[in-house]
């Protein structure tokens, strides 16, 4: 990651370096950060700290998994943050019936958002960035209307447990994110839906001519993204112990896109890197934590993150121009 391609001596094949960086750069960077902290940062490589880091990054991972699918189709979903807020806002309304019903209603909100996004993209033919902008703005507005503009404390113990409990020493939230990552990886690699998704992102005209159900797959992808975002919204609510639709999931769309891009999935579609996405989210989280523990200001951390995004995008371009 630190070896910027433009500083390479002559004679080194830049596209091949870029290729390697896009494939393995994110893992190498995470490893480098861990080693750095192990040596230079006190109390970093402790179970407690790593646990905290993982718990914090889990919602981002879950949202980024859905985002990776959408980006794989050469799309983007800006409405994920608002979807989180929407899911969070409907949650308290149905908690009286128990955790499961309210959870289902929250996920249903995500499905509906995905259906709207998917239909606008696949059936109406809007550009994804425009189509999802509508619910980026409208979704949070709706969430605020539903919550009456107020923050609501969560008192349902089952839901709170979801945010704090652990199974065999691993926080439930982290466990859920891990299982979902495996499921999404399986979906992408081994199912017709996943392979068709990748083919559509790689060459939509060819996919259409080959008789692929392009519209169905596209709608399905946005629905999945919506469901994952709403689940992330529920988990984030549980950790916050409150439903706060005005701030929950703010800027989440950017964090998710960053994780996907840094993880090596090209914005031009045709490829989905699930493990890369997980590590992309992890990298940004660890980077932030490292910089903050070394007493650098939040804004400095953001600038470093911006630098990493630039490198990731540059690497992707360099590789494509081969």
């Amino acid at each position: 990651m630190t070896a910027a391609p433009y500083s390479l001596p002559r004679g080194i094949d830049r596209p091949r370096v870029a290729d390697w960086l896009q494939r393995y750069g994110v893992y190498a960077a995470v490893a480098a950060l861990l080693i750095f902290n192990w040596i230079f940062t006190d109390h970093f490589m402790t179970t407690d700290n790593l646990r905290t880091q993982l718990v914090q990054v889990s919602p981002v991972v879950i949202v980024a998994l859905g985002m990776a699918l959408v980006i794989g189709t050469e799309g983007v979903d800006l409405s994920v943050g608002s979807t989180m807020a929407l899911a969070s806002s409907v949650l308290p309304l149905y908690l009286g019936y128990g955790l499961l019903p309210s959870l289902l209603v929250a996920l249903l909100a995500g499905i509906l958002v995905g259906l709207v996004n998917g239909s606008l993209v696949a059936l109406v033919g809007l550009q994804p960035i425009v189509a999802t902008l509508a619910l980026f703005v409208g979704g949070r507005g709706l969430a605020l209307v539903i919550a009456d503009g107020q923050l609501k404390q969560i008192e349902n113990q089952n839901l709170l447990d979801l945010g704090t409990n652990s199974v065999i020493g691993i926080p439930i939230v982290v466990l859920i994110a891990g299982v979902l990552a495996l499921l999404v990886a399986f979906l992408v690699q081994r199912t017709t839906f996943g392979r068709q998704l990748v083919a559509i992102g790689g060459n939509r005209a060819a996919a259409t001519l080959a008789g692929l159900p392009v519209k169905r797959v596209l709608i399905g992808v946005y629905v999945l993204c919506g469901v994952l975002a709403s689940l992330a919204g529920v988990l984030a609510t549980a950790r916050l112990t409150a439903s706060d639709p005005s701030s929950l999931g703010n800027l989440m769309e950017l964090s998710a896109i960053t994780a996907v891009v840094v993880g090596g999935t090209p914005l031009t579609g045709g490829s989905v890197r699930v493990l890369g996405t997980v590590f992309g989210a992890l990298l940004m989280q660890l980077l932030h934590a490292t910089l903050v523990t070394h007493n650098l200001h939040d804004s400095t951390a953001q600038m470093v993150q911006a630098g990493i995004i630039l490198v990731a995008v540059y690497v992707a371009r360099e590789r494509r121009s081969r």
Partner: peptide
């Protein structure tokens, strides 16, 4: 309109026939 350049020879060949070569949506 033909090839999906980023996919393998195998996946390009089975692109249109994929549903026939799968069971319950699993390749």
């Amino acid at each position: 309109e033909g090839i999906v350049p980023g996919l393998s020879v195998r996946e390009n060949i089975v692109l249109a026939a994929m549903p026939r070569l799968s069971r319950a949506g699993i390749v």
